[in-house]
């Protein structure tokens, strides 16, 4: 989810991009990626989101409120469904804790549990744990230009800069006018497609473009994927320190 949230943040970055001069024709992949990253960066944000998870027995909607500070701290609280209401997650650096009100326990999620699907979605907890700064992780080259939903995009091939990275390569489609990702494919070392993300709807918030609906899909699994909706987002707001503490989980 974190990854998704960052994906959203990347989209949000388009907001900033709209305010910065466009890159000249023939800009390098790295420049484009830096631009995307620069624009997506926001010190703090609070997001209200919905996730629609399609399962064997119908669909469920999970609602959550998330607070994020920088790239290494985030706190989420589930608001719906009733069963998950009050469940909280705290990510500090590389650690992930969850809190469930029914057990009043704070539990460290580690090892193979991190590989489990997040709330039954096509995302794993590990996806939440990734560093969202793409230029830190990848070098980018422009491979082509394509139109997605009528928007002209750069297609960037991202290759891992370092070994400690989940996805060895990615392909991203960057809206040339808005510097947002409209599509992203994540690949294994072998080049096999593992996950896809498609931005299906964008919205304008305070004259900025933000993704409203994203479809995230595990390419190896069957199913309709997981839909993610941003219902509201507040950028660069003040978030008290205690939110990013284990004590906040029990509050």
């Amino acid at each position: 989810m974190r990854r998704l949230l960052w994906s959203i943040a990347v989209l949000i970055s388009s907001v900033c991009c709209g305010q910065t001069p466009r890159l000249p024709q023939g800009a390098s992949g790295d420049e484009i990626l830096k631009k995307v990253d620069l624009n997506m960066f926001s010190e703090n944000k609070i997001i209200l989101s919905r996730m629609i998870i399609h399962g064997e027995r119908g669909s469920r909607t999970v609602e959550a409120k998330s607070w994020q500070r920088g790239t290494r701290e985030s706190f989420s609280e589930f608001l719906a469904p009733a069963r998950d209401k009050g469940t909280k997650m705290l990510k500090l650096q590389d650690m992930l804790w969850t809190y469930s009100p029914s057990t009043d326990r704070t539990i460290l999620i580690s090892g193979h549990m991190l590989r489990q699907s997040l709330m039954g979605s096509d995302l794993s907890y590990e996806d939440m744990m990734e560093d969202p700064h793409l230029p830190h992780l990848y070098t980018a080259t422009v491979s082509s230009e394509e139109a997605i939903g009528g928007r002209l995009c750069w297609v960037l091939d991202l290759a891992a800069r370092k070994e400690e990275i989940s996805y060895f390569s990615r392909k991203v489609w960057v809206d040339k006018a808005r510097y947002i990702l409209l599509k992203e494919n994540l690949y294994a070392k072998s080049g096999k497609l593992l996950k896809t993300m498609d931005i299906r709807e964008v919205m304008e918030v305070k004259s900025h473009w933000i993704a409203k609906s994203i479809l995230y899909k595990d390419a190896l699994k069957e199913g309709e994927g997981t839909e993610f909706f941003v219902d509201s987002i507040v950028l660069d707001t003040t978030i008290p320190d205690y939110i990013f503490s284990k004590a906040a989980l029990r509050k």
Partner: peptide, 16 residues
């Protein structure tokens, strides 16, 4: 058969 795993660095790999 597609198999997915992580290498020593945590990078996903998937091979047929």
């Amino acid at each position: 058969l597609t198999i997915q795993w992580r290498d020593a660095h945590g990078t996903f790999d998937a091979r047929t």
